[in-house]
Amino acid sequence: MAVSVDEAVSTGPARDRTPPARRLGGRGRSALEVALLTVLAVVMLFPVLWMIETSIKENRDVYAVPAQFFGFTVTMDHFKDVFVGPDGGRSALSVAFLNSAVVAGVSTVLATVLGVPAAWAYSRLAVKARKDQLFFILSTRFMPPVVVVIPIFLMYRQVGLIDSKLGLILIYTAFNVPFTIWMMKGFVDEVPAEYEDAAMLDGYTRLQAFWRFTLPLLVPGIAATAVFALIFSWNEFVFAIFLTSSDSVRTAPPAIAGLIGGTTTDWGLVAAASVVFALPVLVFAYLVRKHLVAGVTLGAVRR
């Protein structure tokens, strides 16, 4: 944490530049804001920076006392180790990353395909006891995974889903569908039902009206929802570690966790694996960042 203190102190001059006699509002406040934000940014980003640094340090620099922030030898060996096994073939970690991508991707697609039409139905159709149903759907998320993992484990063992990607995909889908329904219902509610009404009067069936008019307007909402579902599945640890055991099925979070422990821990490898693990989500979230905050309709809504 030495660095964060250093950095925090270094923001001092920025504050000093504003003479105390200056008016309290305006620039004075904004300088204070800048200072606070800088402190905040440093505190928040330090672990990330440290992870990235560790991933490109040689192992002896990792353990150096005092810690080295600059001037260490940069190496890409750890990243190579993430993907290439000691025998020159694919490493167990790279298989785990692939598994993670498959499990997260497929479960997100499934949750979206199931959840979006359900959200539309809850928003548009006269569903009996709609509120109760929606509450029930939400209530399935009240249970933390760790509480239900044992019963799930027993059930999975009965039906032979233990240690299979399909098993993980199903459980992640089950967890993401309620979330997708709730989040998408908000987005569907935002799209005026009159588009569909007009389309139905124009000669389309209800389903065609949904498909051709409402769905295109929902794309930003679907993107936002899918990113959240994807992040959940990608990061999920508890189910993954309980329900899988073999290297060929295991996803990245338990695989990375498995690197720690034993007699020695290759912290460089752990850090490199973590960087690789964090990247896809960051990139994906960055790509859809506009949708994450944007309104849903394409305009023309004057109520």
């Binding site: 009159e194 588009y195 007009a198 139905m200 009067l201 124009d202 069936t205 394409l298 023309a300 109520r303």
Partner: peptide, 20 residues
């Protein structure tokens, strides 16, 4: 009959022009 089969047109308070 379905709306489409009734051969009528409706104008809404919110005009419901397809935005795209």
């Amino acid at each position: 009959l379905l709306p489409a089969e009734r051969d009528i047109a409706m104008v809404f308070q919110f005009y419901a022009l397809y935005p795209h």
